[in-house]
């Protein structure tokens, strides 16, 4: 057992146990922290595969952004107290486990390409690919439009309607 394999086991265990915490935990806050653990584990997997840039992106965007977003959402909504559904979770988890076992039997019988690839791209290579015509310039541009639309639309949804509130108040006064 090499050091790399050991490292893989550690990060994979982190990812899986984080996911399981998300699944089983009774409090939604704890689930969110489980999710952080899972994301950290996945970031570790990226690092193990030689994708340092991706691992850092994962840390920054997911852990820094998405999960914080969730935590905000959790804080803004009252605690969901109905957690008497443990039996249902167990049922689905059992079903998931069975299908996972079935799939993994065939998975380990599958002949996949060996994983002795070349070193993965570094930040410079990725940046160059993103901005080159024959590589990924177009997706980059599409994504920028997408983000613009999402930004404006989400602001519209999230913005408080001052006018409406005023109108309502006036209506009540009258």
């Amino acid at each position: 057992m090499t050091a790399e394999f050991l490292a893989f086991l550690v990060v994979a265990a982190a990812a899986v146990s984080g996911a399981l915490i998300t699944l089983w935990s009774k409090s939604i806050v704890r689930s969110a922290f489980g999710l952080i653990l899972a994301f950290l584990g996945v970031a570790g997997v990226y690092a193990l595969l030689g994708c340092a840039f991706l691992a850092i992106t994962q840390l920054v965007v997911y852990v820094g952004g998405v999960v914080v977003l969730y935590l905000f959402g959790v804080m803004l909504t009252p605690p969901d107290l109905e957690e008497r559904r443990a039996s249902r979770v167990s049922f689905w988890a059992a079903l998931g486990l069975v299908s996972l076992v079935l799939f993994s039997i065939s998975l380990f019988g599958t002949r996949l390409p060996s994983s002795q690839g070349k070193p993965m791209g570094d930040a410079a290579g990725i940046g160059e690919a993103l901005l080159t015509r024959d590589a990924y310039l177009l997706p980059f541009e599409i994504a920028s439009i997408l983000l613009l639309v999402v930004l404006v639309g989400a602001v519209h949804l999230a913005r408080r309607e001052k006018k409406k509130a005023q109108e309502n108040a006036e209506g009540e006064e009258a």
Binding site: L138, L146, V149, V150, G153, L157
Partner: peptide, 24 residues
């Protein structure tokens, strides 16, 4: 595949927002 995913997400995210556009 990447373009399909991106195009689909552009379509989908805009559609989600549009569906909820009547805030009141």
């Amino acid at each position: 595949l990447l373009l399909i995913y991106l195009g689909l997400e552009t379509l989908s995210l805009s559609s989600y927002l549009l569906a909820g556009f009547r805030k009141e």
